[in-house]
Amino acid sequence: MENTAIEVRDLVVHRGKKPVLHGFSCAIPAGSVTGLLGPSGSGKTTLMRAIVGVQLVKSGTVTVLGKPAGDKQLRHEMGYLTQAPSVYGDLTVRENARYFAALYGLSHKEADAAIKDVGLEEAKNQLVGDLSGGQHSRASLACAIVSNPKILVLDEPTVGQDPVLRDELWKRFRGFAEAGTTLLVSSHVMDEANRCDRLLLIREGKLIADDTPAAVKASAGTDDLDQAFLNLIRAGETPGETS
């Protein structure tokens, strides 16, 4: 399993009294872009939180780069973008990036490079609180990529971005993967799924597909990923399956 970066086995997570993931298992290959797709409330964020090690889990294991998720050493290797932008609104873009860079022992140079990577160079001296929604979340993204992590967990990084920028961001993600980073990117936009190496389709805390986009489409018998998702759900609901 040398080329598996993240391995999730029989993961059970309850949030409050509600079960969110029920015995979830998957393996994410190193140096690839894996798309995590599913409707809102399907458990995408919970799975990502478990992978970065901030989620209390009921049972099961999550192994990242051969270590249990949340391991102290892993904190140097991971970048995590939360769904709601988590940066300091009362600091400028640059001050935010420099702070997160400093936490990894990196200099201003890396911080400035990350800002450039997310296309915020012109806004770098603005307070994050004054930015538009899309810029705000890119500021947050800059802080996630600033350390050049081996594992990048991005929870809906492209929401609210204009199409040109979204395209650029995806090219950037591809570039990271080519440089050896493992990316797990959640989205509920199906057209982004085609840009991934692998797809994890998740619904109500269960994995309903884990394959390349082409194979997912082939097995669902359609070229449209939205339709493929629907077909796979329907196929899963055939008699014999109790919900």
Binding site: V54, R75, Y80, T82, A84, S86, Y88, Y104
Partner: peptide, 13 residues
Amino acid sequence: TTGTLERLLTTPL
């Protein structure tokens, strides 16, 4: 509440 704490706790801090 803004999630910065959760994020900080995933860093070497």
